[in-house]
Design a protein around this nucleic acid. Structure first.
Lengths: 199, 199
DNA sequence: TTATTAAGATGCATGAATGTATCTTGACTT
DNA sequence: AAGTCAAGATACATTCATGCATCTTAATAA
């Protein structure tokens, strides 16, 4: 029995509806009318705020990121924090997958940008969560700075993202610990970077 | 100056046109009319053979895979073969990225399948190229079978695919060698799987 | 209370893509 | 050489989403 929504209230509700539509139907299935219906309003209200499907979608994504910041507390132990990071990320798998459907249809054609571009644009300003974890571990002396050279430092994020993109579902706990214990940690733990190891 | 195409000839030309459209415009921008125009024919000819955009797209992908098999010769050295594998794969980055645009729009909604599902369906029968390389290396005694446990064995493929999906472009040579020398080989080379390494 | 502003409902024209039916014409078969 | 079948061209109706214009009504401010 609530009255007529206005301003910021309304806008938040619209973006929430857009987000739900995006996750349920993907970017291709996202329509202005669909969002309007779900929000219990009509298209003109949407049209007054956003021009494109793309604008609306990105605004919706921004709102979700603002609502649920990815924060991993300092536990004094790298392994613990990495697992928590992956667990936290897993709860958002559906949303992440939905975001990537942006690049299917027209979006990446029109803007000629890549998922990487969007990712950096959305993360602009805030340092990456994963990077923060690793820096803390370096300060604690758990790992060596030099073992975090470019392809390695982002490895866990890559593994997670790839899994989500390929399966549209979060990685199970067993897989996450395997990534940490059998891939990432062995690479960064102090095994005195043996360059030109053999041959 | 060529006459009217028929049967298999025509079909191959149609699939070739579809593939080009798919790589240039992505799945979202793929239209029956666009393919017909590019193939120099009209929509009814397409409609007689495939019902969906999806059917057409998958048939086009199949034809490309058949035309360009991913074959890496036995060079007696794992590292050489891995680099050749990644180099070969890189030449197809554009196509691979295009294939994944399938899962943006409607396809994955309608079929409720995942990119993983499609991948396994397309690879059905033939063993994976990467897996073949690794098995050969195990036989040669270059690496230990036990170091190829599940999350590690497919690691290079994961890294490659993730890069292509995120940037829509092939990984540069420097990045490929970094994957091999600083991530994959260190993990599989005989460092006597130290389980419960420390703590 | 009154005035202003935007929410919300409705209607209409448009454009893109598709499905389908029809018809002509070229190529292959016997 | 005649007949058959599919290629290729064209046309029409349909569907879906969008853009825009209009009008009523509710909420907020003066």
């Amino acid at each position: 029995m609530k009255g007529r929504r206005r301003g910021a209230d309304l806008e938040a509700a619209l973006l929430e509806a857009a987000w739900t539509e995006l996750t349920e139907r993907g970017y291709g299935g996202l329509t202005m009318e669909g969002v309007a219906n779900r929000a219990g309003t009509s298209r003109p209200v949407l049209a007054r705020r956003w021009n494109d499907k793309a604008e609306l979608a990105i605004a919706a994504i921004r709102q979700q990121m603002a609502k649920h910041p990815m924060a991993v507390a300092d536990h004094g132990d790298l392994r613990t924090e990495l697992l928590e990071y992956l667990e936290l990320a897993s709860t958002r798998a559906k949303g992440i997958a939905a975001v990537f459907t942006l690049f299917s249809s027209e979006y990446f054609q029109d803007t000629s940008s890549t998922p990487q571009d969007l990712r950096t644009a959305l993360l602009a300003g805030g340092k990456e969560t994963l990077r923060a974890l690793l820096d803390r571990a370096v300060e604690r002396g758990e790992i060596l700075e030099q073992n975090l050279a470019p392809p390695v430092d982002t490895l866990l994020g890559v593994l997670f993202r790839h899994h989500v993109l390929m399966t549209f579902s979060p990685p199970p706990e067993a897989l996450r610990t395997a990534w940490v214990d059998r891939i990432f940690l062995p690479l960064v733990k102090n095994h005195k970077e043996s360059r030109n190891s053999d041959e």
